[in-house]
Design a protein around this nucleic acid. Structure first.
Length: 561
RNA sequence: GCUCUCGUAACUCAGCCUGGAUAGAGUGCUUCCCUUCUAAGGAAGAAGCCGCAGGUUCAAAUCCUGCCGAGAGCGCCA
């Protein structure tokens, strides 16, 4: 490719970098492997771009550049055909390395905050999207050389958990998560929902909750004990879900209860620097009118800190704890304003880091918005369990050998998680997702299981067909060339998805890769073929890339399904 | 009212960053393919004012402006 670029540059008088930029891939492979558009030359040469294309094509055809087997023109494009055997041997060479696709692009310390749940309710599908994104971004960062710290914040205090506490005292006193045989976070979450329902009839409950919060803040022993107990149930339950989902190790948990009074020193510094101002009643605020963000309160008139103050504190704390270069937050798009203000203040305070809010669209249901308050949120556990059961049913219907229940369950879980994670990651993270259970539970077409299936088929061939003899590349078929080109483009996708922090690019790539493989699978039998050795190597290459790609999405492959 | 995000086939979405050749998938629908490596698969077909209107350009789904529609946000809540 390098040679053709320089030859083109010399021939057209355009700079090498510009030529590289202009080159593109034709819409159909039979048109060529890459093309040079001549529109921009028309003005310079005062000739029609079509004529220029023709001239160039003829010139190149008389003396074919290295690695080029044919040159043609169509409209204003000069189309080049590359040597496919050369491509094949280059690709096989690349994928020999198990680390194909791991790039050394950066060397930063990156902190990623997710999933940061509230402890008053069980995890729902919104959290699953959060975790899927967090995991993918983590893997993508590690893959290019960054050191990633997984940071989590438990929103473990405030009016919400106080409501659950009131409901506990009123309707569940003496019961425990264990005694009821209910998963801890679910147990607490149901109390929260109960509170919301009951308080509609009995508005005085709201007052009780506020009183509970005051008692908590005053350090009332009984209140603190109940609070600690309920949170411990929530943590235990959530940890179970984290583990099942495959959440990577959390390097540090932060607790809102331990920092809700913090951040005042930062406010003092900001005041001294003249960044913040004081109102008549003593409240401190920052004027962000210029940035179109309005006025933001940082300290209440009674001197207590607000959410923003705490987050300023936590932001600095995290940077201190891990010496971070970049600090990312995986949080829903409903917090965009908050993070804009937060980062703006941090920058003004002189803390210039790679702050980023990885803002994702809300997950809603066909029936509308999910509300934990009304108990309409799709439970993360239920979704995983149901999908797993469905996958297990599929395995039982298909399996040829006897499998232990344990093996079936383990495979079914991987298939279920692939289905769920892929559904959540294949869409642009900014877009809202309408979660349709029927589609999420589908295992055919553009789904996670389709990807796993392709991989398992490839593995099956490797298991069954023995390699013997030399690799010979002869007479490549279209489906083989397509697959080779797709594999060859993997590193570009890895790079682009990292630069844009867009996991969906990898997800889409994996799907196309699987499609290309399945086409090849049907068109090119391995057993008994003259190209057997080459195809085995190609299949191996496909497996390396698919495994790597799915790994970046936090999805495990399985060898059989 | 203001700010941000989104609007592509009946449905769900790629493509937009970095403008180029007849706009791609999946689902659903109509056919066909399991005596060779897993049919959770493959092949073929029907299905598009790329929200609308302007602008920039040799060239716009892609860039810019306005409008319409959907979602989110605009607390001394978290």
């Amino acid at each position: 490719m390098e040679t053709i670029v320089s030859v083109l540059a010399k021939e057209t008088g355009i700079e090498v970098a510009t030529v590289e930029n202009l080159l593109e891939v034709p819409p159909k492979p039979e048109m060529g492997d890459f093309a040079f558009p001549c529109f921009s030359l028309a003005k310079i040469h005062k000739k029609s771009p079509l004529a220029i294309a023709q001239d160039l094509a003829e010139k190149f055809r008389t003396e074919l550049p290295k690695g080029i087997t044919n040159v043609d023109f169509k409209g204003a494009y000069v189309n080049f055909f590359t040597d496919k055997n050369l491509l094949a041997s280059q690709v096989l060479d690349k994928v020999k390395d198990e680390n194909f696709g791991s790039l050394k692009l950066d060397k930063k310390k990156v902190g990623i905050e997710y999933p940061a749940p509230n402890t008053n309710k069980a995890l729902h599908i919104g959290h699953l999207r959060n975790m899927a994104i967090g995991e993918a971004i983590t893997k993508m960062n590690e893959n290019v050389g960054n050191e990633v710290y997984h940071l989590n914040l438990f929103n473990d205090r405030g009016i919400l958990i106080s409501k659950s506490m009131i409901a506990y005292e009123k309707y569940a006193k003496g019961k425990t998560s264990e005694s009821e045989g209910v998963k801890g976070d679910k147990f607490v979450g149901e109390l929260y929902t109960r509170f919301s329902i009951e308080s509609k009839e009995n508005p005085e409950l709201e007052e009780l909750a506020k009183e509970k919060l005051r008692l908590w803040e005053a350090g009332d022993i009984e209140t603190r004990e109940l609070w600690a107990k309920m949170n411990s149930w929530a943590y235990a339950g959530m940890q179970e879900t984290f583990d099942k989902f495959g959440l990577s190790k959390i390097d540090k948990n932060y607790f809102e209860s331990e920092m809700y009074t913090e951040g005042k020193e930062i406010v003092e510094v900001g005041l001294a620097k003249g960044l913040f101002s004081k109102k008549e009643d003593g409240a401190v605020f920052i004027d962000l009118e210029k940035e179109k963000l309005g006025e933001k309160i940082l300290l209440r008139s009674d001197g207590t800190s607000v959410y923003m103050t705490q987050d300023l504190f936590l932001a600095e704390q995290k940077v201190r704890d891990f010496n971070l270069d970049n600090s990312y937050y995986v949080v829903g798009c409903d917090q965009e304003y908050h993070f804009k203000v937060l980062f703006n203040i941090l920058e003004k305070m002189g803390l210039k880091k790679g702050w980023k809010h990885l803002s994702y669209g809300m997950v809603s249901l066909p029936s509308g918005k999910m509300k934990s308050r009304e108990g309409t949120a799709v439970s993360a556990d239920d979704l995983i369990d149901e999908t797993q059961e469905l996958a297990a049913k599929g395995i039982r219907e298909r399996m040829s050998d006897e499998l232990s229940d344990e093996e079936i369950k383990a495979r079914a879980l991987k298939i279920a998680l692939a289905a769920i994670k892929y559904t959540l990651l294949k869409v642009d993270i900014h877009k809202g997702i309408v979660f349709n259970p029927k589609e999420a539970l589908a295992f055919e077409g553009d789904t996670g299981p389709y990807l796993l299936y392709s991989y398992a088929r490839a593995s099956s061939i490797i298991r069954k067909v023995k390699s013997e003899g030399e690799v010979k590349i002869i007479d490549l078929k279209d489906s083989e060339i397509k697959l080779l080109k797709k594999i060859d483009s993997f590193e570009d996708v890895v790079k682009r998805s990292y630069e844009n922090l867009a996991p969906n690019l990898i997800a889409n790539y994996c799907f196309e890769l699987a499609q290309n493989f399945n086409e090849f699978y049907h068109a090119c039998p391995v057993m008994g073929s003259d190209a057997k050795e080459f195809r085995l190597k190609l299949i191996d290459g496909f497996r390396v890339v698919m495994k790597k790609g799915l790994g970046l999405l936090g999805i495990d492959v399985i060898e059989e399904m």
